[in-house]
Write a protein that binds this DNA or RNA. Structure first.
Length: 481
RNA sequence: GUCCCCAUCGUCUAGCCCGGUCCAGGACAUCGGCCUUUCACGCCGACGACACCGGUUCAAAUCCGGUUGGGGACGCCA
């Protein structure tokens, strides 16, 4: 549903200073589907308005942050081609900045030191939950006038009266009663900033104009708004995008299968397919399903982002991937396919042979992995017949047909579809069998099975020598039967 | 428990702001048909939804209220 407020806000957007968006993953794992879509929306929004896109690594959780995760995230961003204009910035190298801002807050009377221990707090929280109360900090240290010291945290003085309104670009105005909020920690006892404080400081100092993020952050926003105000800083626009769920409507997680972006690369998906799939989760442009990158940049707007969560399934991704496989040139596909071929340790083949083979499989495969697998009969020198197929089609009465075909084909000059087809038609006519009757046996001899690309296209790719050889092997089977 | 958000075919969604053009459109999936040397592709068709209850109105998928359902948040995680 659209609201007047949304339009008013977004109209204002286009007339303001250049937009700056950011994607701030915490390096505690790979880049997953949900994160990738958030990154994509931020990237798209910035690109569509000629703005800047910043990558910021939120690594203040020293326990869980790893360099491997940073690398994995960077790789995934690169694979999806979500290039950033600044960064990656690391929060751990901006500690002085957070301390400065924390001091400002303390000096202006917006923060106070607290000596309550984590364990103690935990107990109080559980008790509150058990009694059916909202588990917020009780403000025990509010007026103790404590100084900085070991094991002490700095807390933000949250006003307990009035309300805070978040004018969300996607969800419209959302009002929070300040009494629902508590005095959140802004500096941990180890001196590191907490998330809610660090984002605000970063977004202020980096000049972020639009915060586009998952709507699991909606509840954090009023706290952040209060901090902006205490700091006397201008608010950015906020846009909270609905989350992506698994098929059981629970948040996407491991048990729903692949969640990390790079797993999809390994499964044989093209980045443009994933992008196209992700962008349509929560965003649409009329009835259009397929978008090129430039179309996305041209057409993306926050107004067309929906409010309700969506479920990620593979059906659509598979279809999109098949679409892009059909659309790409065999040469382009070959570049993407090579790693998959290598993994199967097929014999070496020329690029010409490979692109010829690819061309015949483009309408028949959904993923690069599938294609690499389907390529087997082209690649392996000795093909093995599927037992059922061989006994059904490589029958005695085919002996004469194979014999004839072998001699005719051996003498053929040009070995392409156009010259191959007449040979088969004539053979069928003269031996008084239907073309359909001889096609399957030949297919079995050539590919080992009963499903394949068109006979003549296969033969053209394989070449005369290989075709005749395979036909001969087929004949041997027939005679032995 | 408290607060916040959301609710159209199985799935992604259009329509909702500005009520009639919607006995709700598209796409994926599924099923059927056509094409055809197999399998695909392509084309054609079928199936299939406004969560529920009230209200406002001549008229509601669209506006209002409630119910139910789902999700999120409540950390010295981000």
């Amino acid at each position: 549903m659209r609201t007047a407020a949304r339009f008013a806000l977004s109209r204002r957007v286009s007339q303001m200073e250049p937009v700056i968006t950011r994607f701030p993953p915490s390096p505690t794992g790979a880049l997953h589907i949900g994160g990738a879509r958030t990154a994509l929306f931020n990237w798209l929004f910035a690109r569509s308005l000629g703005g800047r896109f910043i990558l910021r690594i939120e690594d203040t959780d020293v326990e869980r942050s790893t360099q491997e995760s940073v690398t994995a995230i960077l790789d995934a961003m690169q694979w999806l081609d979500l290039n950033f204009d600044e960064g990656p910035y690391y929060q751990t190298s901006r500690l002085d900045i957070y301390r400065d801002y924390a001091r400002k807050l303390k000096d202006s009377g917006h923060a106070y030191w607290c000596e309550c221990s984590a364990e103690e707090l935990e107990v109080r929280r559980n008790k509150a939950m058990a009694e059916g109360r909202k588990p917020k900090y009780d403000g025990a240290c509010r007026s103790k006038g404590l100084c900085e010291g070991p094991n002490r945290v700095l807390r933000f003085y949250t006003p307990q009266s009035a309300t805070t309104v978040l004018n969300d670009l996607i969800k419209g105005p959302i009002e929070f009663d300040n009494s629902e909020l508590d005095d959140l920690v802004i500096l941990k006892s180890d001196g590191f900033p907490t998330y809610n404080f660090a984002v605000v400081v970063d977004d202020i100092t980096m000049g972020i104009t639009h915060v586009i993020r998952g709507d699991d952050h909606v509840n954090n926003t009023p706290r952040q708004i209060l901090i902006y105000r205490a700091l006397g800083a201008k608010l950015p626009e906020f846009a909270h995008v609905p989350m992506i769920h698994g098929e059981d409507r629970s948040p996407l997680s491991k048990r729903h299968g692949a969640t990390s972006v790079m797993e999809y690369e390994k499964m044989g998906f093209l980045p443009e397919a994933l992008i196209n799939c992700l962008v349509r989760l929560g965003w649409s442009h009329g009835d259009q399903e397929i978008f090129s990158r430039s179309e996305l940049i041209e057409k993306f707007t926050l107004e067309n982002v929906g409010k309700s969560p969506s479920i990620f399934t593979m059906e659509r991704l598979l279809w999109l991937n098949a679409h892009y496989i059909k659309e790409k040139s065999p040469q382009e596909l070959l570049a993407h396919l090579k790693p998959f071929l290598a993994r199967r340790s097929y014999p070496e083949k020329s690029d010409d042979f490979l692109t010829g083979a690819i061309r015949t499989l483009q309408t028949r495969t959904h993923t690069l992995e599938e294609m690499a697998e389907a390529m087997a009969f082209y690649m392996e020198d000795a093909i093995r017949f599927e037992p059922e197929a061989a006994t059904k089609f490589l029958t005695k009465d085919m002996g004469a047909v194979f014999l004839r075909l072998i001699s005719e084909l051996s003498e053929l000059e040009a070995f392409d579809e156009a010259s191959l087809e007449p040979v088969f038609r004539n053979t069928a006519k003269e031996l008084e069998v239907k073309l359909g009757k001889i096609a399957q046996p030949v297919r079995v001899a050539l590919t080992g099975g009963t499903k394949s690309p068109g006979l003549f296209e296969i033969m053209e790719v394989l070449g005369k020598e290989a075709v005749v050889e395979r036909l001969q092997k087929g004949l041997e089977f027939i005679l032995a039967a």
